[in-house]
Amino acid sequence: MSPRQEAGSAVRHPRETFALFGHREAEGALLSAYRSGRIPHAWLIGGPQGIGKATLAYRMARFVLSRRDPRAAEVQDAETLAVDASEPVARQIAAGAHGGLLTLERTLNDKGVLRTVITVDETRETISFFGSTAAVEGWRVCIVDTVDELNPNAANALLKILEEPPQQSLFLLISHAPRRVLATIQSRCRKLLLRPLAKADLIGAAAQATGLADDDAELHEAAAASEGSVARALALLGGDSLKLQQRTAALLAALPRVDPRELHALGDALGTSDRVALAAFVDSIDRWVAERLRAPDLDANANLPRLARLAEVWEKIARAARDTQDYNLERKPLVFSVFGMLAEATR
Rank of each mutant, 00 (worst) to 15 (best):
E164F: 09
L193G: 07
L236A: 00
S86Y: 10
R35K: 15
L159K: 06
E105N: 05
R188T: 04
P152S: 05
D259K: 02
A33G: 11
V181M: 08
F171C: 07
L65T: 07
R24G: 05
H264P: 01
K332P: 03
A280H: 05
I39M: 14
G99P: 04
G28N: 08
L251C: 14
S66N: 12
W314D: 12
A94E: 06
A217E: 15
A78Q: 03
R188K: 04
E122G: 07
L310G: 03
L150K: 08
C142E: 12
P260N: 00
K160T: 09
N153G: 15
V147I: 09
F339C: 00
R91I: 09
V147C: 04
S32K: 14
D283H: 06
R38M: 08
A73S: 06
L81S: 08
L81I: 07
A290P: 10
N156F: 12
E27M: 09
R24V: 07
T123E: 07
R319D: 14
R115G: 03
R15Y: 13
C189T: 12
L194H: 05
K191W: 15
S86K: 14
R275A: 11
Q186N: 14
D145M: 01
R115A: 11
A320T: 11
N303P: 06
R195M: 10
A233L: 09
P256D: 05
L310E: 00
A253D: 15
E125T: 14
L252H: 02
S241A: 11
T17F: 11
P40W: 05
D268S: 03
G50Q: 02
R24M: 01
E105M: 07
E27K: 11
G50M: 03
E344R: 15
D216Q: 06
A311M: 02
V117Y: 13
W139N: 02
S229N: 00
I143L: 02
T184V: 05
S128M: 01
W288H: 06
P48I: 06
L194C: 02
L304W: 13
M341G: 00
R287E: 13
F63N: 05
T210N: 01
D77G: 09
A223T: 12
A311Q: 09
D259N: 10
F129Q: 07
V338L: 01
D283V: 00
T17R: 08
V338P: 02
T80G: 08
P165A: 00
R188N: 02
T107W: 08
